[in-house]
Amino acid sequence: MADRASVKDMSKESEQSTLSDEALVREAQGGGLNAFEELVARHRDKVYARAFTMLHSEDEAVDLSQEAWVKAWQRLNQFQGDSSFVTWITRIVINLCLDQLRKQKRQRTESIEQLDDEAGGVERQMPIVTPNPTERLEREELRQRIDRALGQLSTEHRTVLVLHEFEELEYKEIAKVMGCSIGTVMSRLFYARRRMASLMAGVKREEPT
């Protein structure tokens, strides 16, 4: 009897792994926890990655990505399918990360970095970096250098860069998510790019062979 039940469970699991996200969401909206677990298994890395890129802290990123999944379950009936499920859950984790960053910002005293961010900053005076055509990096090494460089940016610069370059959001969408003006988004993005350029100086993107 127990064997039959476990076989039934296994066949249900394998059946779910073949279902589309949309079908799983519909099942989960009806209270199907197994369907929701499958959604978590499919997208947990992507959701965690977004939290980690924004926060640069493993522990916080794990906590917040779990919180995002719990929130997603609670709000699942608000998901109308206007965007893909993965876009929707990513927006939830981005909002949680922004709340967390705002909390941290309130807790720390205003830093020089923050003053620079709003007043023009050292990036404006930086000499223009000319790409070095001789240095070519393997993709893996390039990604590691991007990761290290992102870690050296202020949270405001990193966030705006991640939302623009990785999430491919437009200026107005970033402004809405971050609760600031389009002008602020533009200046933060500009300084973030200039700082990245100096941190990544000498890197040439590997051309596809």
């Binding site: 965690y48 493993e58 790409p131 993709r139 500009f190 790019r193 990544m200």
Partner: peptide, 21 residues
């Protein structure tokens, strides 16, 4: 050229991050 270069090297090169647990 500098701004474009930064965008070009970042696009499609998001650091791969895996859940550590």
């Amino acid at each position: 050229a500098e701004l474009q270069h930064t965008t070009t090297i970042m696009t499609g090169n998001e650091p791969p991050v895996k859940l550590p647990v």
